[in-house]
C-alpha cells in the first residue's frame, strides 16, 4: 500500500515508484477503493508514472454535467448516479469545485447535496478541486476519468463547477454533455447566445416544480431550433422531487457517440495541454515578474515561452 507520507512527497514533486503506480492500478482493478483513491491523487498531482499507467482505458461512457451556479447540478448528479447504479451500471462521479486563487485551498461541498449516492456503496464519488487550472476544469481530468474506467466503472459522471456561457472545456473531456438550466434564467436572448448551449447533447430545465420552468424550456427549444442543434432534447426535471429523472436517464442511454465533434475535441484538448505546459514552464514566474516591471511586452513574453526551455 502507498502510505500518505509517500503521497505527500509526491504532491511536492518527488516521484513515486513505477511499481507503486502499477500495484495501485492492479488493486483498484480488483475493487480496492483505497488504491483507486490514492492513484487518483497521484494523477492529479501530476505524477507522470501514474499518468502513464492509465493509458489505453477500457470502454466507458462519460457524461459531463454543466451549467450556471445554483441550478441544481449536484442534486441532479446525485439522482442520475443512483438511477444508473440501479440499472446495474458501475458508476463513478467526479465533482469539481473551484480552488481559492488566494489560498489555493478549496471547500468541496457537493457531498452535502448528494444524499442518495452518498449512501450507496456501489458508487464511487470523488471531489476534485480545480487547483492551478485557469478555467473551470482541473488539469489531468481526462487521466482521472481513464483511471476510473480501468477500475471497472462504465458510467462516469463529471459535474463541473458552476460555469458561464463560454466555458466549453468539459466538451473536450466527456463523451456527452448535459447542460442544466433553471427556471427564470433570463429571456429568449440568453438562450440564443452562442456558447455551451450549442455543444450540449441534452438540455435539462431543473427545478421544474418552480414557476417559469415551462417558459424556460420553451425559450431554450426555440433557441436551439434557430441553430443547427434542433434535435437536442430539452427536458423538464425536478431532481429534488425525482420528477422526469427516468425520462432523462432513457434519453442519455440513447445518445449516440458523434464523430463530427471529434476534431473540435482534439482542438480543445490540445489547447488544454498547451496551457498545462505553459503553467509548468520554469520560466513562467520570471516572465510574469518582467511583464509586471514593464521589461517585456506580452508579445515578447509569448515568443520567449515558445522557444525551447534550454535555449
Amino acid at each position: 500500500m502507498v502510505h500518505h507520507a509517500v503521497l505527500e512527497r509526491a504532491a511536492i514533486g518527488v516521484g513515486v515508484d513505477r511499481l507503486d503506480s502499477i500495484s495501485l492500478l492492479n488493486e483498484a482493478k480488483n475493487g480496492s477503493r483505497r488504491s483507486l483513491a490514492r492513484l487518483l491523487s497521484l494523477i492529479q498531482s501530476g505524477d507522470t508514472t501514474a499518468i502513464d499507467t492509465v493509458q489505453n482505458p477500457p470502454a466507458s461512457r462519460s457524461l459531463g454535467i454543466t451549467g450556471p451556479p445554483g441550478v441544481g447540478k449536484s442534486v441532479l448528479t446525485d439522482r442520475l448516479a443512483s438511477a444508473f447504479s440501479d440499472r446495474g451500471q458501475r458508476v463513478a462521479v467526479l465533482c469539481i469545485d473551484p480552488s481559492s486563487p488566494v489560498s489555493g485551498g478549496s471547500l468541496l461541498g457537493d457531498r452535502m447535496r448528494m444524499e442518495e449516492s452518498g449512501a450507496d456503496e456501489r458508487i464511487y464519488v470523488r471531489s476534485v478541486a480545480t487547483r492551478d487550472a485557469v478555467g473551470s476544469l482541473p488539469f489531468r481530468l481526462s487521466a482521472m476519468a481513464d483511471a476510473l474506467a480501468h477500475a471497472g466503472h462504465d458510467r462516469i459522471l463529471i459535474e463541473t463547477a458552476g460555469v458561464g456561457q463560454t466555458e466549453l472545456g468539459i466538451v473536450s473531456i466527456a463523451d456527452h454533455v448535459l447542460l442544466v438550466e433553471g427556471p427564470e434564467r433570463g429571456d429568449i436572448v440568453q438562450a440564443e447566445k452562442a456558447g455551451i448551449l450549442e455543444m450540449a447533447d441534452v438540455v435539462v430545465v431543473n427545478k421544474s416544480d418552480l414557476p417559469g420552468a415551462e417558459q424556460a424550456a420553451s425559450d431554450l427549444r426555440s433557441g436551439l431550433e434557430f441553430g443547427r442543434a434542433s434535435t437536442v432534447p430539452v427536458l423538464l426535471v425536478s431532481a429534488l422531487n425525482h420528477t422526469g429523472v427516468v425520462d432523462l436517464v432513457e434519453t442519455i442511454e440513447n445518445l449516440i457517440p458523434s464523430d463530427t465533434v471529434s476534431s473540435m475535441r482534439w482542438r480543445l484538448r490540445l489547447l488544454e495541454s498547451l496551457q498545462q505546459t505553459v503553467l509548468s514552464d520554469n520560466r513562467l514566474e520570471d516572465l510574469v515578474r518582467r511583464l509586471g516591471d514593464g521589461e517585456v511586452s506580452l508579445q515578447q513574453a509569448v515568443q520567449e515561452l515558445l522557444q525551447p526551455e534550454d535555449a
Binding site: S99, G105, S106, L107, G109, R111, G118, S127, A129
Partner: peptide
C-alpha cells in the same frame, strides 16, 4: 472547514447526519 480552506487545504464537507 473555512479556516482549513483559507490555510490552503482541500476540505471535503460531508453535510449532516452521516
Amino acid at each position: 472547514a473555512r479556516a482549513l480552506r483559507d490555510a490552503g487545504h482541500e476540505v471535503i464537507y460531508t453535510g449532516l447526519r452521516r
